[in-house]
Design a binder for these strands. Structure first.
Lengths: 203, 203
DNA sequence: GCCTCTTTTTGAACGTGTTCAAAAAGAGTA
DNA sequence: TACTCTTTTTGAACACGTTCAAAAAGAGGC
């Protein structure tokens, strides 16, 4: 229904009606309208994990793995593009359990990070040391940025998002490769130190 | 009032009461509760522009200029940190006139980009060519990222945000400096091409 | 079948943001 | 002062998301 009518025009009363239950009953199953919306996200997340398996088992080039996983994310989310803006809005409240950074979202977040860990570990490009530890989560942040761009992308078939994935994916992989070169070493080291610092538990 | 009670507890009825007008009357002045919230943002934006003048007139080191402007942004926004999450939420709807990417927000956006143009042009580090054209807007996007981090930052006095500004500000300036070196040239060129491509008007 | 406990369902009511027709107030002109 | 037009104000009403006490239904044991 959200697809046909959009978020705003789909009232909880209409949803209850369509499901053949009372209005109050919908709240037995979903804590709020936002939780209902978020169920769509959870589904596309599962779809994404599943869609990535074949790729990660057959492809070893880091760039292709990364770009493939990101593109799959967009593909599995595409049915929901129509109301992705609303999804973003519900996720934007830092205090909401639906925020990607929230405690409640940790399982989904960890699964995504685990997926990106597989991207890195199963590739022919070897990443070691501190960077290996931090890279999956950095890639997750990068993926969040891509999704954010996608939400705002009005191009046909979200062509621009795919373009962004290709180009930045290539760039990211190049950066990963040069990160071991001596001139880059201090920079990378500092960046990783900052990431660890900002991630440390607050006093 | 938003400061004392928080966004949710501050109803339009309470606001009307406090202002000594009727509930309906508040809508004569502000199109919605979100517009009311956004007026705070507009004010802090003006405060920011004003706060940056002294710095930009006296400092010429690019790094110090950039870090100073970003830190000033956080400082001028600090009074509103309490409900910054709600501000982010209202701005998160891509279709909302309050979104930083919206047509209606263009004036504020352009002013911010103009400010960052001043940061670059008035510095002793010379930036030329295509990069000079694109850099202010890229810096604006970077600033948006900082603000987003700030919104989620629960550290004392937002110390982490300042730390992030320092470290990433330094990194950005270093990247700007090395962008002219021959090994970086192709990368930078490609990045700029992508930016221009994604910014072109849609068919 | 009856009893007890748990789960599911209901629908009236609530609070909040918002709308809008009508009234009031303000401003300018003759 | 009266009239006309514009702006501001009002308050009842509306729509929507949500709540919750009570009712209904389900499940298990005797």
């Amino acid at each position: 229904m959200f697809r046909e009518r959009g978020y705003d025009a789909t009232t909880m009363r209409a949803i209850a009606n369509e499901a053949g239950v009372s209005l109050g009953n919908t709240y037995y199953y979903f804590a709020s309208k936002d939780h209902l919306i978020h169920a769509y996200y959870a589904r596309s997340h599962q779809d994404h994990l599943a869609a990535c398996d074949p790729l990660l088992e057959s492809e070893t080039d880091l760039k292709n793995r990364l770009i493939g996983v990101l593109a799959a994310k967009i593909e599995t989310s595409q049915p929901y593009h129509h109301f992705a803006g609303q999804l973003f809005k519900t996720a934007a409240d830092p205090k909401s359990p639906l925020s990607p950074f929230s405690h409640e979202s940790a399982p989904v977040r960890l699964e995504s990070i685990e997926l990106l860990t597989r991207v890195v570990e199963g590739s022919s490009t070897k990443v070691t040391g501190k960077l290996a530890q931090e890279l999956p989560e950095l890639l997750w942040t990068y993926q969040m940025g891509i999704i954010l761009y996608w939400i705002h992308d009005d191009s046909r078939d979200c062509a621009r998002t795919y373009r962004l994935i290709e180009q930045t994916g290539d760039l990211v992989v190049r950066l990963v490769r040069v990160s071991r070169l001596p001139p880059m070493r201090p920079l990378v080291s500092r960046a990783l130190k900052l990431v660890a610092e900002l991630r440390a538990p607050l006093p």
